[in-house]
Amino acid sequence: MTQETLNDRHKKLAAVRPRLLSFARMHLRDHAAAEDAVQEAMIAAIEKNDSFSGRSGYETWVFGILKYKLLDQMRQQKRHGRWEPFDEEHSDDAIDRMFQQDGHWAADAKPQAWSTPEQAFENENFWKVFDACMLSLPENVARVFSLRELMGLSTDDICKEVGIKENNAWVILHRARLKLRACIEKGWKEDAA
């Protein structure tokens, strides 16, 4: 590889770093730990630079390295017993309040149509709101959601990583999605007001 393309790669790495950082922060919920994970991922990307095949995009490749580091870090945390146990049977007041007794939406919780949902990802405010809503989720719920929707693991793999049953994973994901949806809708309304 020529020096020139190497420099290009490093510039690309610097350019993608803010996004790596926000991804890691969302998953770890800790800024310092996220900085560390991203730094480790960048070191690994530089070390393994030659093994980048070019089949996927460079950024996708770097994200893959970061995801691997984040999973590794999570396994270590789990081994050291730093996790709260999952509270399987507990009903959830916040979810109960979204629905009436008979299972219809409560009047003030009905999902509204979001204007231009597909362009939301291009909208800086969406990410601000999403970030805040992720932080408002209970830690266990956020972890399962993040493994599924940010890291892209199957529920089967999540069950192995986290040590829960699949049915439980579905309950947790259902609650996470309902809460995030409601939180994002609220955040956007306040933003527009």
Partner: peptide, 16 residues
């Protein structure tokens, strides 16, 4: 909206 949340991960490392 659930579908959109499902695509959030791709939005992170796909667009660039």
């Amino acid at each position: 909206q659930f579908g959109m949340l499902h695509r959030v991960g791709n939005a992170y490392n796909g667009t660039i």
